[in-house]
Design a protein around this nucleic acid. Structure first.
Lengths: 163, 163
DNA sequence: TGAAAGTAGTTGTAAAATGCAACCACTACG
DNA sequence: CGTAGTGGTTGCATTTTACAACTACTTTCA
């Protein structure tokens, strides 16, 4: 596909900018989903299987994901590439905007609010953890819970408070 | 339009996430274009007039833009709302990603490279300037050129160097 | 070994979005 | 009054998306 221009913003929009690509990345990152069925069934927005298949194919072609064990009928795992990991700041910026300008269920707001409260260093921490999970980077030496665990924890606390 | 979920990322994608909305915002912000024809003729990617009309209408409906002087035949000016100004970090994140992971013409890379080099404070400065231009905020007291002028300058320097 | 359940998709068809070119109603200006 | 410019709209062809059913293959377990 020929890019419509040499603009960096346009390049990102062409690679990622449709209704589903960002949501696929969101679910891979924050839902830790890496298999076709996992993604298909996990989507709160309800994606069709052919659209998911198409988006995964395009994201792989664009170098944002890789696909392992590509044998038909066998569970094939999708992983983020470094380019995929680097989309996290975009997801954060999108979520941050949506948090201010659109309503959201209290549970779903929690994640974004925590990320915002923790600041930019937290985004870096999440990206490092993604490199461990998806790119076989050596584990980050750390005392206490990792960034995703802290998100989970905040989520549980918010739910407990809501009761 | 019913949102497909209460997720903040999904909210942003539904409001902004199609091939054109981000590019309209980009041209309004960085190209300082605020009129229909200006946008229509200015697009390096070549947008159709009905698509531009539709996107502007949707962005107004979503509270991201406002439209003044809406008399048919008279120049109608579009302005960013505060929600629109707040999309700048998203544009920055998209451009930053595109800069690393896609090719771009040297001229167009300049803007993004400067923004990256100047850091997060520069984004804030740009947003303040947008509030002056679009929201009638009082001018920012400042010695020397403003952030958009500095972008222009860097752009000119890059072109001069290329020759 | 053989049925059942699970895997990643594909296929067919309808609906929606997009792209293109021509056209429209109005205003500003000389 | 005529011409150029304004912000669009209209009609139609093409492309993309959505939904549901179906396929080919593997794994599990009796």
């Amino acid at each position: 596909m020929e890019p419509r221009s040499g603009c960096a913003i346009n390049a990102a929009v062409e690679a990622l900018g449709d209704h589903w690509s960002f949501l696929v990345l969101r679910d891979m990152v924050f839902g830790d989903r890496r298999y076709f069925r996992e993604l298909l069934n996990g989507f709160i927005e309800g994606i069709a299987s052919n659209i998911l298949a198409d988006r995964l194919k395009k994201l792989v072609a664009a170098g944002i994901l890789t696909k392992e064990d590509a044998v038909r009928g066998r569970r094939a795992r999708y992983s983020l590439t470094e380019a995929g990991v680097q989309t996290l700041p975009i997801l954060f910026a999108l979520g941050n905007w949506g948090l201010d300008w659109r309503e959201g269920t209290p549970e779903l707001r929690t994640r974004q609010e925590l990320m915002r409260a923790e600041g930019p260093a937290f985004i870096e921490e999440l990206m490092d953890e993604l490199r461990v999970r998806h790119l076989d980077a050596p584990p980050v030496p750390r005392e206490g819970p990792g960034p995703f665990e802290r998100l989970e924890e905040a989520y549980r606390r918010a739910r407990a408070e809501a009761d």
